[in-house]
Every structure is written in C-alpha cells, then in structure tokens.
Nucleic acid binder design. Structure first.
Lengths: 151, 151
DNA sequence: CATATTCCTACCAAGAGAGTAGGATTTGTC
DNA sequence: GACAAATCCTACTCTCTTGGTAGGAATATG
C-alpha cells in the first residue's frame, strides 16, 4: 500500500471542507464527528495541511479551518504528496534526480519510473472539485460501468 | 511505497533467469552473487515464486531454478501480485468485492478504485520480455526522452 | 559417501503506522 | 476580567511490517 490513513484522512478532510464551502470556519471537532474519526489524530493531520498552506485557520472561539483556495485548484496529487511525503511506488524512485547507486545498470528502473509517472499523471488530473461533484467518468475512465459509453 | 524489496528482488530474479535462458538450472548462489543480494533473503523470496508456479526447480548438486514459461508470458502484474500479496494503493481497496463498510457512501472510493485500475493496467501491459529487451517506449511512454517521437 | 544444492521453520531488530496524552496559547462572549 | 472554545505544540506508546539471519533436513550428483 502506498497511501496510509494519513493521506486518506487528509483527503477526506479536504473534501469535507470543500463541501462546507465558504460559509465560515469549520472546527476540528465538527470534522472529526462528521467523519467519525479520532479528533486527536485528525489534529495532527490537519496540522500538516495547514502548515503546507492548504488551509486557512482561525484560533479561539468560533475558530476552525477552511480551504485556502477554490476546490478546483487543488489536485489530489498535491494533497497526497504533502501528507505522505512521497507517492513513489518503490523507494528506488526518489524526488528529482536522487537515485539508487545501481541506477545506471538497472534494467527494472524504467519500469518503476514509468509506473511512478502513470500514478502521478492520474493524480494530477483529478481535482477536489471532481470528487465533490462525483465525476466518476474522470476517476474511473473506461472502468466506470454507470457512465455513458465513450463514443 | 507500494512495492517492497520482496517484490523488487523477485522481479530482479525473474529478469536474471530470463536472461540466462533455457540453458539449464541456475543456482541460488549464482543469482545472489550476480545481483549482489543476500542469499538467505533471496531464498525466501524465490520460495514464493516457486510455490506460485513461476519457476521450475531442481534439488541436489547442479540443481537450481529456471523459468517455467517464456518471458513474454509473464506480466509484471502477476509477479508482483504473487510476491507482494496486493498492489492496492490503499487498504480500502481489497481483492474482488471485499470492501470497507463505509464504501456505499464514500466519495473518495472512486478515486482509489480508479488509481488501482490505472496501476493494474500498466503492470499488466508489460512483460518480462519487455524488460530484458529494454522496451523503454512501452515502459516510459511519452516520458521516454530517448525514444522516437510518437508522430 | 561427500558435496552441492533446494527446502523448511523459526527467530530478531529497526522502523513505520496509527494513534494518545497533556497542556500552552489564542480569541470571542458574557 | 473570567470563562469557554478552539487551535497549536511536544512527547509518548503500542503493534505490525519490513528486511533480514540461523540452522538444519531432504535430495540429487559424481
């Protein structure tokens, strides 16, 4: 598995906040309750999102969190990348140039690099908005049985 | 990360055996040496491949392992699936129908399902032969800088 | 019989994943 | 100003997975 609960919950939070829209700040306890997740654990995850500039926060009474931008301006890739640190399918694929010392002669490296690109490409192509509008066609592509046929 | 050393080493072993071709059985110690990997650890990995019917083995002196089929008849997907158990990017995607109890109302599930399909699709499209022949075009697609332009 | 090999079971150390605990700080309301 | 509701911050813990290691039994060749 490549995405842990951290990334999954982070995405869930973002979706929740996107649904709540612009009407004020939503408190951590509200989010935890509506998603039935541990408040303390969510707290640590939201902290990552917040420090990464994904959210706006307001302390004190009636405080909480809201999205910093429009849902269509968040790709799933950036949300998961921030929370997970890396989305590479193997640890011989590192960020930006750093590579295993056998890279030059490794015959399986192109496979891993290709897989990495396929994943990145998919996740960059989907936005928060796609999720809240339930754009199954975009997410499931040809595998969507309830979508209109492509032609 | 989704693929551990177990799956990576397994693939390396398969590639190594594919390169050695049909000329007899290759011993574990030869493989370990040529790939510079721990013999004992490789042993446990080869055991999985062997039990899964990917290899033919011969015990005793001059024994060893060879591929059970032609390299073009192995997809990367089946090799990794056998050794890793699952290739699902999240653990709310399980094999064949088993699902999380929130699945019915989960708005992020289509995303994970789509990601899973994209990965599976990619890995099913590449064979052992593609790796030993260095078919970069197939593995890297549009990201292959040394390939001919698609036209 | 000696040797080279696969096969099998058990064990172990380090790190990651999934949270918990407790409190300090900030802000709105009475 | 007191209180309550909220974010912020640091540290801890427990369990499972990863990445191996160890030792020996079974088997085949010469």
């Amino acid at each position: 598995m490549m995405v842990s609960t951290k990334g999954r919950y982070a995405l869930t939070v973002m979706v929740d906040l996107a649904r709540k829209g612009e009407d004020g700040y939503v408190s951590l306890s509200d989010i935890a309750e509506s998603e039935k997740l541990s408040m303390k654990y969510l707290e640590s995850i939201i902290a990552i999102l917040n420090k990464g500039g994904m959210l706006k926060s307001l302390r004190g009474k009636n405080g909480g969190y809201k999205l910093a931008r429009d849902p269509k301006d968040y790709t799933i890739n950036e949300i998961l990348l921030l929370t997970e640190g890396t989305l590479a399918p193997v640890n011989c694929i590192m960020q930006e140039g750093v590579q295993c010392d056998k890279a030059a002669t490794c015959s399986t490296l192109p496979l891993w690099a290709g897989l990495d690109k396929v994943i990145e490409n998919y996740l960059k192509g989907i936005t928060l908005e796609d999720i809240i509008t339930g754009n199954r066609k975009k997410m499931l592509g040809d595998y969507c049985v309830s979508c209109e046929p492509a032609e």
